[in-house]
Simulated scan of single mutants.
Amino acid sequence: MSEKITTDKNETRLSLEQHIARALKRKRISQGYKISDVARIAELSQGMISKVENAQVSTSLDTLSRLCNAIDLPISKLFSDFDIGGRGAQHVKSGEGMEVVRTGTEVGHTYHLLSYRQGPIKRYEPFLITMDDASEVFPNFSHAGHEFIYLLEGRLLYRHGKQFYEMGPGDSLAFDAAVPHGPEQLLDVPIKLLSIIHYDNED
């Protein structure tokens, strides 16, 4: 029996999880894939994919990227179709930022992406970072653009290149993100850090 998706023109605005679930399921079905096919290609469990398609879990960007690649759906297209009122504001409630898996991070080091839709060109990425394992060893991060960080809670020693900065609540740091950087030592946990990465896009 073929799968069908029904829509109601008078339905209320979808949450981000519901929007992702519906878009992924529609694309999968249009491509003629079964959940088992996507699971094999994306190297994810069928149970996980089923939960995502039924909006039962908040999906990490790593998992979402695998799913989109498996069904040939550009992840930028997925977010650009999210209804946030045309050119209006995007409101992300507390705790609803999408969890991001970044290479090199360990348990106790979590990123939540606070904004998803910015148009066809990615101009910036705002993250809320939480760290609660004082013994964690951090990798060197290096990426395009400039970064601004603002410490909300806790204390840490942050490195940028060969320089080290001890930071407490209310302290900020702005730097060239192409230079290796990252937390050197967590002095007082838990730590909450706002990080905004601005990309120097040239048309």
Rank of each mutant, 00 (worst) to 15 (best):
125 E>I: 09
126 P>S: 06
126 P>T: 07
127 F>A: 00
129 I>D: 02
131 M>K: 00
131 M>W: 02
132 D>V: 03
132 D>M: 02
132 D>P: 01
133 D>G: 09
133 D>Y: 10
134 A>F: 09
134 A>R: 04
134 A>C: 09
136 E>I: 14
136 E>P: 02
136 E>Q: 13
136 E>S: 13
137 V>K: 14
140 N>C: 10
140 N>K: 13
141 F>Y: 10
142 S>D: 11
142 S>M: 03
142 S>A: 15
142 S>I: 07
143 H>W: 01
144 A>V: 08
146 H>Y: 15
146 H>F: 10
147 E>G: 00
148 F>C: 06
150 Y>W: 07
150 Y>L: 11
151 L>M: 08
152 L>D: 05
152 L>W: 03
153 E>I: 06
153 E>S: 02
153 E>L: 13
154 G>W: 06
155 R>K: 15
155 R>Y: 12
155 R>P: 05
155 R>I: 09
156 L>G: 05
156 L>M: 15
157 L>G: 10
158 Y>V: 03
158 Y>W: 08
159 R>C: 11
159 R>L: 10
159 R>D: 06
160 H>Y: 13
160 H>M: 11
160 H>G: 07
160 H>L: 10
162 K>S: 14
162 K>N: 14
163 Q>T: 13
163 Q>L: 14
164 F>R: 14
164 F>H: 15
165 Y>A: 04
165 Y>W: 04
166 E>L: 08
166 E>T: 13
167 M>D: 03
167 M>V: 06
168 G>M: 01
168 G>K: 02
169 P>M: 07
169 P>K: 05
171 D>T: 05
171 D>S: 03
171 D>W: 04
171 D>F: 08
172 S>Y: 11
172 S>W: 05
173 L>N: 06
173 L>V: 09
174 A>N: 15
175 F>N: 03
176 D>Y: 09
176 D>W: 09
176 D>C: 02
177 A>Q: 07
177 A>L: 04
178 A>N: 14
178 A>F: 14
178 A>P: 01
179 V>K: 12
181 H>Y: 01
181 H>S: 04
182 G>I: 03
182 G>N: 00
182 G>P: 05
184 E>S: 13
184 E>L: 07
185 Q>S: 12
185 Q>P: 06
185 Q>A: 13
186 L>T: 00
186 L>K: 00
186 L>S: 00
186 L>I: 09
186 L>A: 06
